[in-house]
C-alpha cells in the first residue's frame, strides 16, 4: 500500500535518492495531479531540516518542505512573500503545498518563485557531496528546466531579511480562489535603486510562456 519511501533524516533521504528512482514528494499537490504511473515517492515531510524556518544575519531560510500556511503564520517570512502565497490555491492547497515543490516542479506559474526572483533569493541544494548555494536565476532556468543535479535535493530557500519592505505585487488570475496565474508582477523598491522582477505572460494568447525577467536600474540616489 505504501507507494514510496519515508525518509526520517536528510542523510537517509539522500541515500534513497541515489539508490532508487524515487521522486521527491513534499506536499503532493502537483505530483498527485500528474499521477505518474508506477511512481515511487520519497516522502520528505518528516525531515527536520526541510521543515524549519530559521534566520541568520542576512537571510530567512525557508525549508523546502515548509507549507505556505506555515510560512504565512511565521513572523520572519517577508511580507512580500506572504502576500503572494496567500493568493495561492485555497486553504487546503496552502496547507499542503511547499516552497520546494513550487520551484522544484519547474512550473512557469509558480507564485513563490516570482518573489524569489524579485528578492534575489538563493537556493540551497544538498547532496551526499555536501551543500551548494545558487542564485535563483541560475537554478530556475525556464519552464521545467532546473539546474538540479542527480542525487540533489532542494533544502532551503534563502530570502534576504532586509530590503524587501517596500514592494508592489499584482497577480491576475481567472478567479479569486484556485486561480492559476495568468500574469503577475512583483517590484521591490529601495532608496537608491529600483529592482523590478517578473512580468510573466503565461497564457498563449497573451504571449509566450516565459521565465520571470529581471530588470534592475539605478534610478537615483535618494536621501530621506
Amino acid at each position: 500500500m505504501v507507494n514510496g519511501y519515508a525518509a526520517e533524516s536528510l542523510q537517509q533521504a539522500l541515500d534513497i535518492l541515489v539508490n532508487t528512482d524515487a521522486v521527491p514528494y513534499a506536499g503532493g499537490t502537483d505530483l498527485m495531479v500528474e499521477n505518474r504511473p508506477d511512481v515511487k515517492y520519497l516522502f520528505l515531510k518528516k525531515i527536520p531540516e526541510l521543515r524549519a524556518i530559521t534566520v541568520d544575519e542576512q537571510y530567512v531560510h525557508i525549508g523546502a518542505a515548509v507549507t505556505f500556511t506555515e510560512a504565512i503564520a511565521n513572523p520572519d517570512v517577508p511580507k512580500l512573500m506572504k502576500e503572494a502565497i496567500t493568493l495561492i490555491g485555497s486553504p487546503a492547497i496552502r496547507n499542503a503545498g511547499t516552497f520546494g515543490g513550487n520551484i522544484g516542479n519547474g512550473s512557469d506559474k509558480a507564485d513563490s518563485v516570482l518573489i524569489e526572483f524579485a528578492a534575489d533569493a538563493k537556493i540551497c541544494l544538498v547532496s551526499q557531496a555536501g551543500e551548494r548555494l545558487v542564485d535563483v536565476a541560475h537554478f530556475y532556468l525556464g519552464r521545467k528546466k532546473l539546474d538540479l543535479h542527480p542525487g540533489e535535493l532542494i533544502k532551503e530557500i534563502l530570502l534576504p531579511r532586509y530590503g524587501l519592505e517596500q514592494y508592489t505585487y499584482q497577480k491576475v488570475g481567472g478567479r479569486k480562489a484556485l486561480a492559476i496565474t495568468f500574469v503577475s508582477f512583483a517590484g521591490v523598491f529601495q532608496y537608491f535603486k529600483c529592482a523590478m522582477a517578473g512580468l510573466r505572460i503565461l497564457r498563449p494568447h497573451l504571449g509566450q510562456p516565459g521565465t520571470p525577467s529581471r530588470d534592475i536600474r539605478i534610478l537615483k540616489r535618494c536621501f530621506l
Binding site: 500500500m1 503532493g28 515517492y41 486553504p91 487546503a92 492547497i93
Partner: peptide, 15 residues
C-alpha cells in the same frame, strides 16, 4: 488537524 484535498495526498504520505 489541517484541511487537505484527499485526491492530492499519496497514501504513503499519511502513514
Amino acid at each position: 488537524d489541517v484541511l487537505h484535498n484527499s485526491c492530492c495526498v499519496a497514501i504513503g504520505a499519511v502513514v
